[in-house]
Simulated assay, not measured.
Amino acid sequence: MKTFKNKKFDGLCQPSGFQFACALSVCIAATAWFSPVRAETVDSELVLLVDIVQPELSQTNFTRLLNSYANSFTSSQMLNSIQSGATGKIAVSVMLFGGASMQVTGVPWMVIGNAAEALNFANLVRNVTRPTTFAFSDPGAALTAATKKFGTETGGASNGFESTVQIIEVATAGIPSASMATSTANSSANALASGVDLINAVALGTFSNSIDSFYTANVIGSTIPGVQATSTEAPLNGTLNNMMGGALTTTVQTGSAAAISAVPEPSSLLALLPTTLLLLKRRRH
């Protein structure tokens, strides 16, 4: 606190202990008021990127796909995987995409760390409204839009969460045009360079083999040591639920393991103590 040196004001402006305490309280309150809200720490942030282009993905199959997501996140296996991480929680969002200008948030960022939160997310997923689009799906533009959703970890504005691992899971029944290969590959490379750690894909439906080849060559990727990105095929029938559940659980387990491995070892933390104590000692003098 500033004090005046002019002797004329010495008796008036020297604060008493009570006055100093009050002023300090006001300063602390003002700091708290103007400080930005701290982002919530989670193990990983996951964007479920869903291709909604018709007629490749019919309304019936779109509903079936969303139900498989909902069932996956409310399973005990998924919750066990989530809670095995360093913080025991993740943040998830759903984005729907079609052509170059069609990227819509289906479910905004939500934290999942317990059964109630998982059920809340699942209910929202089951009730996602599907926009209408008939344009050729553009996975490159979708990857660029999804990358921005992670916020500070990928160079954007905060999304309310901070995590060790950022993951994109793409699900598509649409065959991208071969002319999109280069731009899609560039978008994937830019996403990984910007901070996305893992991009997986699931190729759905009748043309899943061709889709899988395109996504393997141009979309999937990983920067996590020892972890390979995957592109798998899944039929749009009764087995979809189990296949998607297994793929998503494996993805979440990967994020949890990476989050744990990123936490400093106890010995490393102990090594920091002498330096910290030295700084505190200097600050007191």
Rank of each mutant, 00 (worst) to 15 (best):
172 T>D: 03
191 A>P: 02
202 V>R: 09
157 A>Y: 13
171 A>E: 10
140 G>R: 10
200 N>V: 05
151 G>L: 04
218 N>Y: 14
231 S>W: 12
151 G>W: 02
157 A>I: 07
187 S>C: 05
139 P>W: 08
230 T>V: 13
142 A>N: 06
153 E>K: 15
155 G>L: 10
189 A>V: 02
200 N>Y: 09
191 A>M: 06
190 N>A: 13
190 N>I: 02
177 S>L: 11
165 V>F: 08
172 T>P: 03
226 G>M: 11
179 S>G: 03
145 A>Y: 12
238 G>A: 07
156 G>T: 03
188 S>M: 12
211 I>A: 06
141 A>R: 12
196 V>F: 05
173 A>K: 06
160 G>T: 02
234 A>H: 10
176 P>M: 05
235 P>A: 13
184 T>F: 11
221 G>A: 04
200 N>E: 03
228 Q>E: 06
156 G>N: 01
212 D>N: 14
182 T>N: 13
200 N>M: 04
155 G>E: 04
139 P>E: 04
226 G>N: 11
174 G>H: 09
215 Y>L: 11
169 E>V: 00
158 S>V: 00
213 S>F: 13
137 S>K: 11
135 A>K: 11
169 E>R: 09
222 S>H: 09
232 T>Q: 13
189 A>G: 02
148 K>N: 12
174 G>N: 02
172 T>Y: 01
183 S>D: 01
151 G>M: 03
204 L>E: 01
203 A>C: 09
166 Q>A: 10
212 D>G: 07
151 G>I: 04
218 N>P: 00
235 P>W: 12
225 P>M: 03
167 I>S: 04
214 F>L: 05
187 S>F: 08
135 A>P: 01
183 S>A: 05
174 G>D: 04
230 T>P: 06
236 L>S: 04
136 F>H: 14
186 N>S: 11
200 N>F: 07
239 T>W: 05
213 S>R: 15
146 A>F: 08
150 F>K: 10
153 E>P: 01
171 A>F: 14
181 A>K: 15
143 L>S: 03
201 A>R: 03
204 L>A: 01
133 T>C: 13
226 G>Y: 12
194 S>H: 04
214 F>S: 01
209 N>F: 13
162 E>R: 15
169 E>Y: 07
224 I>T: 03
226 G>D: 06
213 S>N: 09
220 I>H: 05
224 I>G: 08
234 A>F: 11
171 A>Y: 10
188 S>D: 05
193 A>F: 03
158 S>T: 07
160 G>C: 06
212 D>M: 15
170 V>W: 09
172 T>V: 05
239 T>V: 12
185 A>L: 10
137 S>L: 09
182 T>A: 04
138 D>G: 12
201 A>G: 00
146 A>L: 08
220 I>E: 06
237 N>R: 15
139 P>H: 07
203 A>E: 06
239 T>F: 06
152 T>Y: 01
144 T>H: 12
184 T>S: 11
141 A>Q: 11
165 V>K: 15
229 A>Q: 03
233 E>Y: 11
200 N>S: 01
219 V>L: 13
184 T>W: 11
133 T>N: 15
137 S>N: 12
149 K>F: 01
158 S>C: 00
171 A>C: 14
146 A>P: 10
186 N>F: 14
186 N>R: 14
148 K>T: 03
181 A>V: 12
178 A>V: 11
167 I>E: 02
203 A>L: 09
203 A>G: 09
